[in-house]
Structures are given as structure tokens and as C-alpha cells.
């Protein structure tokens, strides 16, 4: 069998195994409390009847292992249970919210990826000169800024002072694509700024790494200009590491999205998760945690698979 395909198959199997283990960990994470989950959800003043009801609803009278398997079995067939607080079906509530979150993250990615690659190329072209230094200073600053700060500064400038975009990202059913886009543009810009610096720095490092190769020197000696060398020789060879960088940062978007959705009151997965953590609605938190972790693991897996496929030594084994 082809070597690269075999490695990809191995990586896929590893990803699935990891996902299974993570589901155990997320389930266990809500069980590690010494004592009674029902008690801690309802507080000390709960009546014995309310406690007994909640225990029955959550199936706490059964052992943890059998509860885990029934939860996992449900999750695999698309049944994530019902929310404790509202009694609503979790899979249904998540459906539209997941769509909203994917849309937001997608818009952010469409802005961030080309911009990061362009700036990374510029930083390499003007290495150790002022554009490069400016870019690395901005990078340091933006790594040190909390996501909510970027969000509120953007709201203050573009929503309050200039009035270009709404400060609250309200989305409703049947909204047109362009309306939706104008609503998510500020949150998407915030997310872009959160991941841009990191993505750009890793792009710069990936291209610089390629620039050390002998064929780059040949191209330079041939008399090609700096930009030609980068565009024709360095960039194509840096694509694999750059795709890897992009995937890792998309995985990072998964976390950024939680905070940004709260800032802009955007009805997505992050908002849903945070709301139900403070309401101590364990089934919803478990379901959201599992989905977030699955997306994160999935993106990391794609990053690994791309770098396996992009490696010519693995594609054409001797």
C-alpha cells in the first residue's frame, strides 16, 4: 500500500481514538466533584424532593459508567439529551447555533488567511527592515491583548463613533446573506485580529525556513528579484507548512469564538455554552464541550494529514 495513504489512515484512526478518550474526559470532568452534582447545581437550600427529582432526571441513581455509555450512544446517534433548565432538545438548539458559529468563523477565516499570508510575505521581503519590525511589534502587542479588549475597541470606533455597523450582532431566521454579513463583520474582524498575528508570524518563519535552501540561492544568483524569488520558488515550497499554520489557527478560532460571541451577543455555540455553564446545566455543557473538542481535534488532524500529503518524500517513496 502507498506509504502516504497508510500514514493518513493511521492518523485518522488516532484522531478517532483521541475523540473517544476526550469524550471520557469531558464526561469525567463533570463527575469529579466529591459529593453530589445535584446538590451543587441546586445549592445548599434545595429541598430533598427537588434533589431527588433532579437526581432522577440526570440518571444519577445509576452508576457513572452506564451513564457514560448511554450518553455516548445518544451523542453518536445525534441525541444529545434535553437541557435541565428549559427542557429543550439540545440537538435542536445546537443545530442553528452551530451554523451561526461556523458562518462567523468562516468569514473571519476568509479575511484572516489571505491577509496573514500577504503580511508574512511582506515581512520576509523586508526582513530586518522597518516593515518587518513594525509587524513584529504589532504582533507582540496583539498577543498581549485579551480578545474582549479588541472587540470593545472595535465597537467603540466602528459602531458608536462612526455608526457603520451594529454593536450587537443580532441574527434571525430568514435573514438575507448580505444582512447577515454586515452583522458579523465586526465580530469577524475581532477574530481576525486575534489569530492574524500568530498566523502571520508562523507564515514568516515557514518561508524564512525555505529561504535557507540552496535552490533559493541559485535563484538569487540567476538574477531574479526578491519578490520573484519568493513568489516562484519560496512560496510554493512553503505551502505545506503554511496550510499547517492556517489549520492550527483555525483550531484556535474555536476558543476565540466563545469570548467574541459573548462580546457581540451573537447567538452561536460559544454564547450557548457560557450561558449554560453559569446555569449549571450539565447536559448542555457536556454536549457543547464535546462539539468544541471534536472540531478542535478535527482541525488538528486535517493539519497533520495535509503535511503528510504535501511531503514529496512520502508521496513518492523509493
Amino acid at each position: 500500500m502507498h506509504l502516504a495513504l497508510k500514514l493518513v489512515a493511521q492518523r485518522l484512526a488516532l484522531g478517532l481514538l483521541l475523540l473517544l478518550a476526550v469524550s471520557v474526559l469531558i464526561f469525567a470532568g463533570t463527575q469529579i466533584l466529591p459529593g453530589d452534582v445535584a446538590q451543587s447545581i441546586l445549592g445548599q437550600s434545595a429541598t430533598p424532593e427537588a434533589l431527588a427529582n433532579l437526581r432522577r432526571d440526570m440518571g444519577l441513581n445509576e452508576p457513572a459508567v452506564s451513564r457514560y455509555f448511554s450518553w455516548l450512544g445518544g451523542a453518536l446517534t445525534g441525541d444529545l439529551g434535553t437541557a435541565l433548565t428549559s427542557g429543550a432538545d439540545i440537538s435542536k438548539s445546537i443545530g442553528s447555533r452551530l451554523g451561526n458559529t461556523v458562518f462567523l468563523a468562516g468569514v473571519a477565516a476568509v479575511i484572516a488567511i489571505p491577509l496573514a499570508i500577504l503580511l508574512g510575505l511582506l515581512a520576509v521581503r523586508y526582513r530586518e527592515r522597518w516593515p518587518d519590525k513594525l509587524i513584529s511589534a504589532v504582533t507582540l502587542a496583539s498577543i498581549s491583548l485579551p480578545e474582549f479588549f479588541i472587540g470593545y475597541v472595535l465597537i467603540l470606533i466602528f459602531a458608536v463613533n462612526l455608526g457603520w455597523f451594529p454593536s450587537v450582532a443580532t441574527v434571525y431566521d430568514g435573514m438575507g446573506f448580505l444582512d447577515r454579513l454586515s452583522v458579523v463583520i465586526l465580530p469577524a474582524l475581532t477574530l481576525t485580529m486575534v489569530v492574524l498575528a500568530h498566523m502571520m508570524r508562523m507564515t514568516r518563519a515557514a518561508i524564512l525556513n525555505v529561504m535557507q535552501s540552496a535552490y533559493i540561492e541559485t535563484a538569487e544568483l540567476k538574477g531574479l528579484s526578491g519578490l520573484q524569488v519568493i513568489a516562484r520558488h519560496a512560496f510554493p515550497n512553503a505551502i505545506a507548512p503554511i496550510v499547517n499554520v492556517v489549520m492550527l489557527n483555525l483550531a484556535y478560532l474555536v476558543v476565540g469564538v466563545v469570548v467574541v460571541e459573548v462580546v457581540f451577543v451573537y447567538p452561536g455555540m460559544g454564547q450557548y455554552l457560557v450561558d449554560h455553564v453559569s446555569k449549571r446545566d450539565v447536559p448542555v455543557v457536556q454536549a457543547c464541550g464535546l462539539i468544541f473538542a471534536a472540531v478542535y481535534i478535527g482541525l488538528n488532524m486535517v493539519a497533520d494529514i495535509v503535511s503528510i500529503l504535501a511531503n514529496p518524500r512520502l508521496r513518492h517513496p523509493k
Binding site: G29, V255, H276, A293
Partner: peptide, 13 residues
Amino acid sequence: SIPTLIFALVVLS
């Protein structure tokens, strides 16, 4: 392999 913030939220629930 689980994002730190997500895991913290799960535990803090």
C-alpha cells in the same frame, strides 16, 4: 487535545 478554556468551562459547570 481539548482547548483549555473549553475544558475549564466544563469543569466549572
